[in-house]
């Protein structure tokens, strides 16, 4: 469904993505692993057109989206994608209910009279009660914010959901609840999911495929089983979470 070919992204002199090649299959969950600052978020921001690429192609159903320059066409493309932000990025001037239905007004023709039903339905899908709709984002816990943000994404029924570190900053139980949610959504809605994470427990649980991003390139792509069995010292060190290994040595050299 999505093919990333020789993707490059530079910020000034800094080459964050050097030559990323990756296939994202339809209806599957692909986790992109990598350390902090490895360019994971940059990669998915390029996918949704929030960042302009410096080189390469991103093909969505065979169409190169990096060539789209029209703001109107770019908005149409974003209709197919949903993005779950790391901190939720809920609009703090609106209630939870207004946040959930925000995208409906701009991306769909759903009449406003249907909004209450959709709020109830989407909040239930992420395990929240209807009365949460009246609250303001500032009244929510970290986990609830992420779930409301996910309900906002689901309201517009995207084909692809991009999750930016969905379990970061949450306690282990809430992290597991979010992981279960991602699995449930794939099963119920058949959405294609791309999950940026460095939470190995979550990655192994939710992923159909995993890609390891290191120094601007995909170092390893495969199933969770491939990652468990790999001999690649970089990947092995990351998977085991050890402070000793080539990644640490590289940091010390810098």
């Amino acid at each position: 469904m999505i093919e990333i070919k020789h993707l490059q992204k530079t910020f000034g002199e800094k080459h964050v993505l050097k030559d990323v090649n990756l296939n994202i299959p339809k209806g599957k969950t692909t986790c992109i692993l990598g350390g902090s600052g490895s360019g994971k978020s940059t990669l998915i921001k390029c996918l949704i057109g929030l960042l302009e690429v410096s080189g390469g192609q991103i093909l969505v159903d065979g169409r190169d989206i990096t060539k789209i320059t029209s703001e109107v066409k770019l908005a149409a493309l974003r209709r197919r994608f949903g993005y779950l932000f790391q901190e939720g990025a809920l609009f703090d001037s609106m209630s939870v209910g207004q946040n959930v239905t925000f995208g409906l007004k701009y991306l769909t023709d759903v009449p406003e009279k249907d909004y209450p039903k959709i709020i109830k339905e989407k909040l239930a899908l992420v395990g929240l009660r209807e009365d949460v709709a009246k609250l303001n984002p500032s009244e929510l816990s970290g986990g609830m914010k992420k779930r409301v943000s996910l309900a906002r994404v689901l309201a517009v029924e995207p084909e692809v959901i991009l999750y930016d570190e969905p379990t970061t900053g949450l306690d282990p139980i809430m992290s597991d609840i979010i992981s279960d949610l991602i699995i449930d959504l794939k099963a119920k809605l058949g959405v294609t999911s791309i999950v940026i994470t460095h939470d190995m427990h979550s990655a192994f649980k939710i992923a159909d495929y995993i890609a390891f991003l290191y120094e601007g390139n995909i170092l390893l792509y495969g199933t969770p089983e491939d990652f468990r069995k790999t001999d690649n010292p970089y990947v092995k060190q990351f998977v085991t979470g050890s402070s000793h290994g080539p990644i640490q040595m590289k940091l010390m050299k810098e």
Partner: peptide, 17 residues
């Protein structure tokens, strides 16, 4: 504040310029 908390990016992703 909206820019630093990614709310502006969220607007883009929800089809709103």
């Amino acid at each position: 504040t909206m820019a630093v908390t990614e709310q502006i990016d969220a607007l883009y992703t929800l089809g709103t310029n």
